[in-house]
Design a protein around this nucleic acid. Structure first.
Lengths: 170, 170
DNA sequence: TCGAGATTGACAGCATACTTACAATGTGGC
DNA sequence: GCCACATTGTAAGTATGCTGTCAATCTCGA
């Protein structure tokens, strides 16, 4: 009494799939971010990088990638662009010749200060259409899901690990 | 009695931002999808394109982009790759010389049939860590949010508009 | 019917995102 | 001290994702 037929493939296989919804939402989020931050010419990834370098001056690229969970290769190009725009400086480490230490320039620190209101507006706009209670629920579930799926991503978030050694050396 | 100080910028500005969580979740979702579908050598975007062409044979690239809400320029490359892999055929329209009509090949239709179990497994894995009730809640809120934010994205979903004309001509 | 404006697919250019590979360098075991 | 192994930054290759622009083509109004 079993059904041997393959179920028909409809657009529901796309529209109701979590993966599709995550992709759509990501695109919407980027679109809103870029729109709100247009005057500052900064992308979401570049913003996250600036914040991390600001929080951890002298961090290297590999550790930075672990702290914000972005790919190491990709991050190389991101930093290069930030360097071209004079927001970030790369200085060779004396202790380890392989490593280049990252620092914000004055200009980079100023940009970070100035852009925060735009970023906050963007983040608020993404959830705006939901009722306040639903925003909280969504954010909580998403935080939980991202955390529980951490190891499933190609570049797991390793905030503490990456920072363990910082501050040890004088 | 007001506080004129700029609040300090910490990593919270990244970790708790909806935009960051959406990006992380998207990356995790793609990672899981690619892993589950490794044997079929198909990406999430390519899968969505195949489903849409399967559902709407003879659709053109511009309408396809509206149906799955992907960028028109990007989709050109996606289709090209699907054509190279012999999953899709492009045929010039007789009625409108600008348009190229899209069809699945036998091989493309077969792939779509075969890959569905892997896709279903992937979609399930993305939400696996959550309790069943929470999965439903998250999906419902996300569906709602994507829908309400539709116009905010660069390429809004226009499923019905795009299909209105299909089936009219013999 | 004719010409302004829209549409379509293609292309160039930039920015993520990931894979593999590689040279320079560090580290630890022996 | 030396060598196997790991780490770091970089590069090449592929795949989205977006902005423009362009030529060919279509449409519609005057």
């Amino acid at each position: 009494m079993q059904n041997n037929k393959t179920p028909p493939v409809t657009m529901d296989a796309v529209y109701t799939a979590p993966g599709y919804l995550f992709r759509r939402m990501q695109q919407i989020a980027v679109s809103i971010f870029v729109e709100e931050c247009r005057d500052h010419d900064l992308t979401p990834v570049q913003f996250a990088s600036l914040v991390a370098i600001h929080t951890h001056p002298g961090i290297d690229a590999t550790r930075l990638s672990a702290v914000i969970a972005f790919d190491r290769s990709t991050l190389g190009n991101v930093i290069e662009r930030l360097e071209t725009k004079r927001y970030v400086e790369r200085k060779p480490s004396r202790e380890d010749k392989r490593i280049k230490l990252l620092y914000l320039t004055k200009s980079g620190a100023a940009l970070l200060r100035d852009i925060m209101p735009s970023v906050d507006r963007a983040q608020a706009r993404m959830l705006q259409p939901l009722k306040p209670a639903d925003r909280k629920t969504l954010l909580a579930l998403l935080t939980q899901l991202v955390d529980l799926n951490n190891e499933a991503s190609r570049v797991p978030l390793r905030a503490e690990d990456a920072l363990e050694h910082l501050g040890k050396s004088g």
